[in-house]
Design a protein around this nucleic acid. Structure first.
Lengths: 294, 294
DNA sequence: CGTCATTACGGAATGCGTAATGATA
DNA sequence: TATCATTACGCATTCCGTAATGACG
C-alpha cells in the first residue's frame, strides 16, 4: 500500500510535470522524490507518469489516480481539524433531555444560547421524565438533562436553572376562580383534586404533599404528566397543582391561581450532567452559561 | 501528518477496543501498535482513545476521527484499483469523432460493441468533419475517428470499417426516377447538380469527379454536408451524389438511384487513431473489434 | 554539452519485536 | 496477582541527501 507522502509527492509532480520543481515545492531533492514515485507506481501496479526524459506527462491511469489522491490528501488534512474542533467543543453533538413541562419554560432560551454560542454543535433533543434522564446520563446516552431534583451528588453535577410558583389550575368559572380575596390552601377543602403520580412524578407529588394537607379521598385522578393534568382540569374533572409555566401550554378554559400560603418559587428545574464529562461540547456549554462548578 | 498505517491501526483499535486483539488483527505486537496510536494522537493533537488501564474507549473526537479515517482508508484502497482498471482499458473514457454521414451507418453498431465489450468505458461523441478529426487526434483531444481517407500513414493507423455505394439522390418523380432501364452516368447530361465542396468535403468531391464527368455549368449548389445536400434534393433544387446510407436520414421525397457505371462500394469509411496510443481503453477497443495492426 | 531523471552509496531516522515496567482491579 | 497498556532497548529497514550515471535533444 502506498503512503500519504507518496500521494502528496505524486500530486506535486502531476501539477508541476517536472520532478525538480516538484521536489523544490516538497522541500526535498529530486532523487528521493523520484524513488517515492517509483515506489508508488510499483504499489499501485500501474504506470502513472510517462517520462520522456525531456518532459513528464500523466497517463490515463495517472489522471484518474491524481483525482483520487487529491481527495485522499484533502480528507487526511481535514480529519485532524474536525477532531480538534470536536475535542475543543466547538463542534459536535449535544444530547439534551428535557421534561415535558420544562419544554414550555426554559428550553427555548437554552437552545438559543447554544445556537448562538456554539453554532457548529448539533443539539439532539429527547423528551424524558427525570428518572429516564438520570438513567440515560448514567448510560452515556445523554449529555445534559433538564430535570427535577433531587440527584445523586456522587454521580451528577447540577445547576438550578429556573424557579417558578406552584399554582392551582381550575376550570374557568369554578367557584375558586371567583374568590374576591386571595386564596389559601384551606379554601380547597373538599374540592376534587387531580394528583401527581407518587412514583412517576414523585417530585411534584412530594412538593404538593409538603405544602398542602391533601385529603386523599378527594383525589379523582392520578397522573404523571402536567399536560394531561391541565387537560383534565379543562374538562372540569377537578383542580390540580401545576407549575406556573403550564400557562404556556395555551389550553383554554383553565385559570391559574396563586395560593398565598404556598411558598413562592417552589418548583425548581435543574440542569444536570455527569461528573465524568466525556463530551467537550458540554464543557463549552457549561462555560458559556456559567454553570460550571455549581 | 499521520500515516495510512496509523489510520488503519486506529481503526483496528477502535473496532476491537483492545490493543492486544487489534495488534493480533494487524499481525503485529502490542508495543508498536501502542506507539503508533500515540504518534497518531500527537500528530492529530487530540486524545482519540481513553485508556482506562482496564478498558479502551473512544473519545468524542475519536469517534469523529474514526469516521474520517475509515473514509480515507477505503479511498486509499480503491484508488489503485481504479487506476488498474483504467490502465487495463477496462474502464475509462473513449473520445470518438464521427462525420455526420457516418452517424447514420456504422456509428450505432460501433457504440453497441463498445457498450457490450467495455461496459465501464464512457464514450464521448463529437460530430466532426474528417479534417477536424485528424487535428483533434493529433492534439490528443480525440482517441478514435470515423473518417474518410486518406490519412498520413506516419501519424495514423486506420482500418476500413464500412463501404457503400455512391448513389444518385433525385426528387421523387424526377425524369431520372422513371427510367425503365438501368441508369448510366451519361443519362445525367444537363441535369442540375448539387455538388460537394472541394475544400470542406474533398473526399466526396474527388470521388464524384473521379467517377463522373461533371459539367461544372450544371452545378447549382456547393455544399459540405450530406444532410444539406439531400434536403436540397428534396426541395427539388437538383440531383446529388450521396452515399447509400443517406437513405437512413429518412428525408421524404427523395429517391436513391444506382448508377451502373459507378464502381460499387466506392464510399469508404475508416476508423483512424494515432500510432501513439495513450488511452488503454482504445487498445481494448481495437482488440475487441479486431482492428489492431491493420 | 546541458538538462533531467534515475541509480549508487553512506548516514540518520523510523519501526518492529522482545523484555521490562507500570497501573489497576 | 492477573491483565493490559506503556516504556526500554537492540536490530533491521526505510529514507534522505550528495555524488555519480544515463538518456536525450
Amino acid at each position: 500500500m502506498f503512503t500519504l507522502d507518496q500521494a502528496r509527492s505524486f500530486i506535486a509532480v502531476s501539477e508541476e510535470l517536472h520532478f525538480g520543481r516538484a521536489a523544490e515545492r516538497l522541500n526535498m531533492t529530486q532523487p528521493p522524490l523520484s524513488r517515492q514515485i517509483q515506489k508508488l507506481e510499483r504499489s499501485v501496479g500501474v504506470e502513472l507518469l510517462e517520462r520522456d526524459n525531456r518532459k513528464v506527462s500523466l497517463t490515463a491511469a495517472g489522471r484518474a489516480f491524481l483525482a483520487e489522491a487529491r481527495k485522499i490528501v484533502v480528507a487526511a488534512e481535514r480529519a485532524p481539524k474536525t477532531a480538534q474542533r470536536i475535542a475543543s467543543g466547538m463542534s459536535g453533538q449535544l444530547r439534551v433531555g428535557f421534561t415535558a413541562a420544562s419544554g414550555f419554560s426554559i428550553l427555548g432560551s437554552l437552545l438559543s444560547e447554544i445556537a448562538e454560542g456554539l453554532p457548529d454543535v448539533d443539539v439532539e433533543l429527547q423528551e424524558l421524565v427525570t428518572g429516564e434522564q438520570v438513567a440515560a446520563i448514567i448510560d452515556g446516552d445523554l449529555d445534559l438533562g433538564l430535570a427535577r431534583p433531587a440527584f445523586d451528588e456522587d454521580i451528577f453535577q447540577s445547576h438550578l436553572l429556573f424557579t417558578e410558583d406552584l399554582q392551582l389550575a381550575v376550570p374557568v368559572g369554578h367557584p375558586l376562580d371567583r374568590f374576591n380575596r386571595s386564596l389559601r390552601v384551606a379554601d380547597l377543602k373538599g374540592a376534587p383534586l387531580i394528583m401527581h403520580s407518587p412514583t412517576k412524578a414523585s417530585y411534584f407529588y412530594d412538593l404538593v404533599v409538603r405544602n398542602v394537607p391533601v385529603e386523599h379521598g378527594n383525589v379523582v385522578h392520578t397522573v404523571s404528566q402536567i399536560v394531561t393534568m391541565v387537560a383534565l382540569v379543562a374538562a372540569g374533572r377537578g383542580v390540580a397543582f401545576v407549575p406556573e409555566s403550564a400557562r404556556m401550554l395555551g389550553i383554554a378554559g383553565v385559570s391559574y391561581l396563586r395560593l398565598a400560603d404556598i411558598e413562592p418559587d417552589a418548583v425548581e428545574l435543574y440542569a444536570i450532567w455527569s461528573r465524568e464529562i466525556r463530551n467537550p461540547a458540554l464543557v463549552r456549554l457549561l462555560e458559556i452559561i456559567q454553570m460550571k462548578g455549581q
